[in-house]
Design a protein around this nucleic acid. Sequence first.
DNA 1: GGTGTGACCAGCT
DNA 2: AAGCTGGCCACAC
Length: 114
Amino acid sequence: MRNESFFYKVYDVVSEIPYGKVTSYGAIANFLGTKRSARMVGWALNQTKTQLESIPAHRVVNRNGMLTGKQHFGANDLMRQLLESEGAIIVNDKIINFDEMFWDPARELSFEPK
DNA sequence: GGTGTGACCAGCT
DNA sequence: AAGCTGGCCACAC
């Protein structure tokens, strides 16, 4: 049984995102089994700021590769600068090379949630 | 325990 | 083709 809530799973997955890689909310939701709970993933990330551990939430963007959650990082360009420092090419708050930076948890991670 | 929310996604107009 | 609306699920108050 998983005492950890859905949020905690999200934290684990996001924490496993390797450097220079990004993923989408829907991919995480799909990996966790609740494909239609993509909104929950974003909400979970919103709570990461309250978490003691630092979670690379900047590596999570929407399906289009757009930095929809940058406004939640406090500084407007913080998320963009973090991603750019990892090799992402961002124009208009959108990752141009999102396709080559995309990291699918369902494909990269082996453990499957229950 | 019910209501509201949320950094999305897919479908409809 | 592009924009918008609704639905969705799990958590916080």
